[in-house]
Write a protein that binds this DNA or RNA. Structure first.
Lengths: 252, 252
DNA sequence: GGACACCAAACTGCATGCAATTGGGGCGCT
DNA sequence: AGCGCCCCAATTGCATGCAGTTTGGTGTCC
């Protein structure tokens, strides 16, 4: 069980996949903030590939929900609404409960120490930037998913975790990672002990509290982009051409 | 709540999306069986687009797990292993429990009749081919997901449901759809009544029984492709070039 | 000064073309 | 016949080129 053959779907060494990985990482480390523009040319130039490839990569990331693709317009890093963020966390909770349910009592000794090592790394990174802490915390969950050896589960947990990462950069306040780390340790302990119900409850509580700390309130104000907020209203005048908004001072 | 603005991620009318939809449907209706080859040229020619577009579409479907992309080789319709199929169903159960939990007691009268209409259509289709019955049954679940108005949930439920469809064509026996339809009706009733726990249990049982009827046994023999079975063994000699398999009589 | 029309630059949508890789059939050898 | 080898058609990987759309800036008129 420890080693099924590596997934056929696993990202090979295509140029496309390389770019996807790079962009994904840039996004979750908030080097690219939500709303950041991603012109095909620039990406191509930056990564030394043609626009075709950059375009393809953007397509993949759009399928994962990390970037938003509008016809004839520049692609941008996705800007999930507050509700979408909440939905993502709800899904994530169910998926990760499934992960730990499958894993409880089934981890090898080496897997457990791998997990502990990872949390140690999280601990050491506490002095660094928030971005790195967030990435490591996310990778802990992905590491867990990988231990199920279920490619599908890995893919979904990864995707939804990345999306949650994205929302963190939108709606979260400075955010202390300490308790999260302790919760990670508790989860490992419960997994090792094999207490299925307990670990599911721990994971549920862990993610729920992260979500609640992050998604402080349905503050439409912090939704970063005025136009998004206005979109639903614009819908009601859909029949005619929407009035052009006056130029607005953009923060940032 | 009934009508959030339609998702920004929703598939527009790109040529790529058109092809994706067409292929997806062909796959779940088993017009394209698992393992079927999907050369870029042929697709392009068939749909009147260039290879670039066909390629891009294949990329999207690969991201959804419906097709398998091997470097420098012809893409094929995915052939999930028995274990992957089981994993897909497990995930699906959790996701759809979430769906009905969110929906219980929150459906409008018109939504309920929409659901009933759909099941009526399933009923009428009972005389037709299995493929259509399966598609309709799947679409019932997707319809439910759509009523949550959560784009993310819709996407994941759709994807995983399609994947389950795919496995049905691999591992399922003739398969009577009757009880499934009754279960659909029961779910609608419980949703309307607003009995959250009951409807979650119904959905769980429904999907579980579908899975159990479909995934009859971990029969590696029926895994359709001898080469897949041998793949893990080949992994162990990864350092050197894998021995070429002698030509083997291919069924079908 | 502000609104509108227009135009050029930027960018995407897509097709085509070329190099590289694969797999399968034919050929010779044993 | 059986086995291995080589070569070519089939196919993918990728870049480039062209046409159509959007953007943002400028000039003009009120």
């Amino acid at each position: 069980m420890a080693a099924r053959p590596t997934s056929k779907t696993s990202e090979s060494s295509d140029k496309v996949s390389v770019i996807c990985r790079a962009l994904r990482r840039a996004i979750i480390e908030q080097a690219l903030e939500p709303g950041a523009k991603l012109p095909e040319d620039s990406l191509g130039e930056r990564f030394g590939v043609s626009r075709t490839i950059a375009r393809h990569a953007l397509g993949q990331l759009a399928a994962e929900g990390l970037v938003e693709l509008r016809r004839n317009r520049i692609a941008v890093v996705a800007t999930p609404s507050w509700q979408e963020a909440r939905d993502a966390f709800d899904i994530r909770i169910e998926l990760e409960r499934l992960v730990v349910r499958q894993l409880a009592g089934k981890l090898t000794r080496s897997q457990i120490s791998e997990l502990n090592d990872h949390v140690d790394a999280e601990d050491r990174a506490r002095g660094g930037t928030d971005a790195v802490s967030i990435r490591l915390a996310t990778e802990f969950h992905i590491l867990l998913a990988q231990m199920t050896s279920s490619p599908i589960l890995v893919r979904y947990v990864s995707e939804v975790a990345y999306r949650c990462c994205l929302t963190l950069s939108l709606y979260s306040r400075p955010h202390s990672t300490e308790c999260a780390i302790n919760e990670h340790r508790a989860i490992i302990a419960a997994l090792a002990k094999g207490d299925e119900a307990k670990v599911m409850e721990l994971m549920h509580h862990h993610l729920d509290s992260v979500a609640n700390r992050a998604l402080v309130a349905p503050t439409p104000q912090r939704g970063r982009d005025l136009l998004d907020i206005l979109a639903p209203y614009a819908d009601e005048v859909a029949s005619d051409r929407v009035v052009k908004l006056p130029k607005v001072a953009r923060r940032g």
